[in-house]
């Protein structure tokens, strides 16, 4: 199975939310990283056929997704960022409703619903109205509905939003189990969510795909760009403002330990550190982070 995005573009007025994006995806987990407004959600909506591209095409095994219509959508599972639900429905009713929408036979739908509500730890509340659910419970229900039809292409937009740390680990394991022979596209701006489960990392900035790399190689470009600096407290602010700061930690005495991302050695005595995905992300989005700091 091959999902190919060809020069996919979406323009809203003058702004290009997605700009001539091309990528070919084969079964595996694709972790999509990008700041808010980078174009992740727009891209996912286009992949799921709920938003038409301004130009470009999506192909599944060489066939246009638009022409495939129902045959394409029956392979899809989608958890949108803002998951809409029906407050008057119980979790079970909601799952059966989505099953009907996905064309799953009634008996099979019942079995899958029971099984999946168990997987996302909602069995005990399966007959309760969704109105009474917490944010995390709704999100888990959203995840369950997305995998209801055992989709070949699973698109998850910010799936871990609203989940507590334990639920996030549980979710990661669920996706890892589920991923065999499937294309899973998972967007987030929480780096650790994709760090452990993604086979491929996609980094999107201003609507463009700036990195498309296997997860194991992803941090290579950051080799010799991550520095550990121990500086006196009074110098910490000056250095933090001058360089891209990865982390700041106050030591036992007056010293501050800084994790600096820089092409050059930032200060004398700085020691090279092992890069992480978060370093890579921060390195590429340092201008956004600077903007955020400025606003703050």
């Amino acid at each position: 199975m091959e999902l190919k995005l060809n020069e996919l573009t979406k323009q809203f007025g003058q702004k290009k939310a997605v700009d001539r994006m091309s990528i070919t995806m084969k079964p595996g987990v694709y972790g999509m990283l990008g700041a808010n407004g980078a174009g992740k959600t727009t891209l996912m909506r286009m992949i799921c056929g709920v938003l038409n591209p301004t130009s470009g095409d999506i192909f599944l095994d060489g066939n246009s997704a638009e022409n495939l219509g129902e045959d394409y959508r029956k392979l899809l599972g989608y958890l949108p960022q803002d998951f809409g639900y029906y407050p008057e429905f119980t979790a079970q009713e909601f799952m059966c409703y989505v099953a009907a929408l996905k064309g799953i036979p009634k008996q099979e739908a019942k079995i899958r619903t029971k099984e999946l509500l168990g997987v996302v730890s909602l069995s005990e509340v399966s007959n309760k109205k969704i109105r009474t659910f917490s944010g995390g419970m709704k999100q888990r229900l959203g995840i369950a509905q997305a995998v209801l039809n055992d989709p070949k292409i699973l698109v998850l937009d910010e799936p871990t939003a609203g989940l507590d740390p334990k639920e996030r680990v549980h979710f990661r394991n669920l996706i890892a189990d589920f991923s065999k022979d499937k294309i899973i596209i998972l967007s987030t701006h929480i780096v650790s969510d994709v760090e452990y489960i993604a086979d491929t990392i996609l980094i999107i900035k201003d609507g463009k795909l700036i990195i498309n790399s296997p997860a194991e190689n992803i941090t290579h470009e950051m080799d010799r760009k991550v520095w550990k600096c121990v500086v006196p407290k009074e110098k910490a602010t000056e250095i933090s403002n001058k360089f891209c700061l990865g982390n700041l930690h106050h030591g036992d005495d007056d010293a501050v330990i800084l994790r600096i991302l820089s092409d050059e050695i930032p200060i004398d005595g700085a020691i090279n550190e092992e890069p992480t995905l978060e370093d890579l992300y921060l390195y590429h989005f340092q201008s956004d982070i600077a903007k955020y700091r400025g606003i703050r």
Binding site: L76, F83, L101
Partner: peptide, 21 residues
């Protein structure tokens, strides 16, 4: 109401979201 609640994303991406529904 589907547009307002955001449920449109889910239902329109399903097999029958644009036909039988």
């Amino acid at each position: 109401g589907e547009y307002q609640s955001g449920a449109d994303s889910v239902i329109l991406s399903t097999r029958y979201g644009k036909s039988k529904l």
